[in-house]
Each structure stands twice: as C-alpha cells, then as structure tokens.
Design a protein around this nucleic acid. Structure first.
Length: 419
DNA sequence: TGACGTCAAGATCCG
DNA sequence: CGGATCTTGACGTCA
C-alpha cells in the first residue's frame, strides 16, 4: 500500500515545471526548459525519497509541447544521462511513478486529427516512463473521452483506436471513470473487454455514479480484477469534495478522519492510492504518517516544525495543545495531531493571532535586520492592525526577509504557503 | 461563443 | 525600475 500525490510539491525548492508560449518555443528555449524541468523532477524525486513517499505522478509539462510539431527535439537522446540518473533513483527507492494526460487528450474523438494527436501524446507519455527505465507497473491514466450523442459508437471508437496503439503504450495505459461522461461500470466494461486495468476515482464516482446503491468498496473490488501481475498493485484515485464549491471540486486538504474511514474499508494492503488534493504532498505525508503501523514522535516533530507558525497564526490554543501532545516523547498520536492542525487551519483570519505569529517570525531577523527594515516591518504591522494592509502583504515582507537572510527554517516551513 | 481546469507566462498597471 | 496584479494560453468537448 502506497500513498502518492500529483505533479507538484509545496515547499520544495526548484521543483516547478516551466513552460512558454507556443510562439516562443524555439529550439534553444525548449532545451533550456527541458533541462530545468528535469532538474525539477530530480528535486521532486529527492524530496519524495526523503519524505518516504513511494508514489508520484509526473507532470505532463515535463517536456513542453512534447507532442506538438513545434518541438522536434530528441529529448530522450539529448538528456539520456539525466533520465537514467533520475530513473535509477526512482527504481532504487521503489517509487511507483505514473502520468496522466489532461482532458484534452481524446482517443475516441470523431475528428481523426484529434485522435492522431492523442496517439502522439500517449506515445510521449510512454516515452518519458520508458526513458526513466520504469517497469510496466508505472502507468498512464486516461479517460475514455467524449460521448458525441452516441455512447455506444464512442466506446467502439475508443476500442478500435486502442487496439491500434503501439505495444509500448498499451503496456502502460489504464483507464479511469470521469466526472460526467463515463461512470465506473461503463469504464469497467471497456476495461474487461480490452483487458485494460481500471482506476476507480471516488469523487468522480460521486458526481457521476452508475448504480448509486453500490458502495465504493464494491467498485474497488470490481476494478481489482482488471489488474494483473505485470500491472502492479491496483491503483485508485482518492479525493474529497471541497465544501461550498461545485460538485467534483477537489478539497484544499485531505480530512484525515474521513480518509481513515475510507482506508479501513480497503482491508488488505493491496491498493495504491493517488491523492488528488490542492495541498498535494502535505496531505500525502499526513496520510502516510497516520497509517504507519509504528511511528515515532520524531515524525510529528518534523511536521510541527513546518506547520507551527501557520497554527500559531490561527489559534494559540491549538498551538499550546500540540506542544502538550508532543511533550510525550514515547507517544505517537498522529490522528490527534493532524485533527488539531486541520481544525486550526479552518479558522478564519484573526488579527491578534496573526500579529502574534508574525512577531514570532520577525524574531528570526532581530539581529540581522537593518533599522530601515525593522522600521518598515513595524509600520506594516501597525497598518495591518488598523486594517490598512492585508496579512498577505505583511507576510510577503517576512518572506522577503527570510530569503535575504537565508532563514532556511522559515523557508522550509509552510508559513508562507498556506493561505 | 464561452465554460470547463490548470498553472505559470506574459502583459499591464502602479508607486 | 521592480513589484503587484490582471489576463492569456494550450488543449477538446459540450451546452
């Protein structure tokens, strides 16, 4: 059982994927971008290794315009060394990577050009995973596509186009239920017929259910049968509905108790779970820490070092509560720990608490800051008190100082990231 | 034609 | 000039 997150990690330095406008996609620019993105991928993999994260979705943005004629670079040759170095790390650390082309890769389109481009795009994704030297358990997740007023014909087109795909793509392709067109029983039907593994997505199944009386566990068990030995463990997508947002919108963070309730129904350890959530790696680490059979308080202390000022900003009570919890050095109560965090982070902005946290953080610069910087900050503090500036701008000032005076502890924390 | 989703690039505005 | 904020892009489907 592994838990992973998709594409980008919060708080990891030099880990973003960069792109450019199509009109600026010169050979030189593209090569620059690819080199940078491979370096970012390397940093992401390093972070995952350090954090004990065993599952990760690689962003399709790794190679800009990869399946477009504007990019004719043989990146798999030029960057062979980089790919193999990263790939070795992935394999040595048993990280299961995957990819997921967006909603615009449509294999069952009525337009042949669209299908052609979809095939190109799937080949690109396979090529990335091949270049990394990953096994056939590292998958490419795809939706069935459009309906075009005739689902039967649309599925036939999918089947026909699937059968024409080259083997190196077929080996990796898996299909997933989507949020409006193809529900889980329809995708299962296709998967069983074509022998393509099926990924169950719980939130899509909520907004686009097939037989609403059937439970999530039922569908997960049904899907399990489509995964064979060479495909690796069954994969599912898990996300939670964002409150007050449209149905199907991903939540900011994973509510741990809700997750554990879902998790307990999975029973055995034979399912890999890809989280789809805005706070990405933060929720992945949370869930991993909460399902460990044995954990040490040290793990929570590391988490606390990253969350503490965000918590202080919201609730000094929660701050004290967690400090108490962490005093018991041979106790390990991750669920209690994260529940307090979640509750605190849900609190609305409170000027008193926010000022308190900001002053604590400013304490890091007491010695370094010049008189001018001190003055500038304190005047911002007063403005914030009077409602003349926002917390965001106040924190931006602190962020600037953190970079200038190289306060790694603050820069690696989530204080500047959350809200 | 615009919403959908996604994010950063690019454009523009402001002090 | 640099930083902040607003707009666009890149993709295909569907209302």
């Amino acid at each position: 059982m592994s838990i992973g997150y998709a594409c980008l990690a919060l708080g990891v330095k030099d880990s973003s994927m960069k792109g450019c406008l199509k009109k600026n996609a010169s050979e030189i620019r593209l090569k620059e971008l690819i080199r940078g993105n491979l370096n970012s991928l390397d940093n992401l993999i390093n972070y995952n290794i350090e954090s004990g994260i065993k599952m990760f979705r690689i962003s399709s943005d790794l190679i800009p315009f990869a399946s477009s004629p504007v990019n004719s670079i043989e990146w798999w040759n030029i960057y062979k060394k980089e790919f193999s170095l990263i790939g070795n790390k992935i394999r040595e650390n048993k990280i299961r990577v995957s990819m997921h082309p967006g909603q615009y890769t449509v294999l069952n389109s009525q337009d042949e050009g669209v299908v052609e481009r979809a095939v190109e795009d799937l080949q690109y994704h396979s090529r990335v995973l091949d270049s990394l030297g990953t096994g056939s358990e590292c998958k490419i997740v795809l939706h069935i596509g459009g309906v075009y007023n005739d689902k039967y014909k649309a599925i036939e087109r999918f089947s026909k186009n699937y059968s024409k795909l080259p083997d190196f793509v077929k080996e990796r392709l898996v299909i997933e239920n989507d949020d409006k067109s193809y529900n889980i029983s329809e995708v299962l039907e296709v998967g069983k017929r074509l022998k393509v593994p099926v990924v169950f997505d719980n939130l899509h199944n909520f907004s686009n259910p097939s037989y609403p009386e059937k439970s999530e566990e039922f569908w997960i068990n049904e899907c399990r049968g489509t995964w064979s030995e060479k495909d690796g463990k069954q994969k599912i997508h898990y996300s939670q509905q964002a409150v007050y947002k449209r149905v199907g919108a991903h939540s900011e963070s994973i509510e741990i108790k809700k997750f554990l309730e879902f998790y307990s129904k999975l029973g055995n350890g034979n399912t890999d779970i890809m989280l789809e959530v805005k706070d990405k790696n933060l929720s992945a680490v949370k869930c991993i820490n909460c399902i460990r059979s044995s954990g040490r308080i040290r793990l929570l202390e590391i988490e606390w070092s990253k969350y503490k000022y965000s918590i202080l900003e919201k609730s000094s009570l929660a701050y004290k509560e967690i400090r108490e919890l962490l005093k018991c050095k041979n106790g390990y109560q991750p669920v209690r720990f994260y529940s307090i965090l979640e509750n605190a982070l849900r609190q609305p902005e409170n000027i008193g608490n926010a000022l308190n946290a900001a002053m604590h953080v400013f304490g890091y610069f007491k010695k370094d800051a010049s008189d001018k910087e001190r003055e500038r900050f304190l005047s911002k503090i007063n403005k914030y008190k009077e409602g003349e500036t926002s917390l965001r701008l106040l924190k931006k000032e602190l962020h600037r100082l953190s970079i200038k005076y190289e306060k790694e502890y603050l820069l690696e924390s989530y204080y500047f990231l959350l809200q």
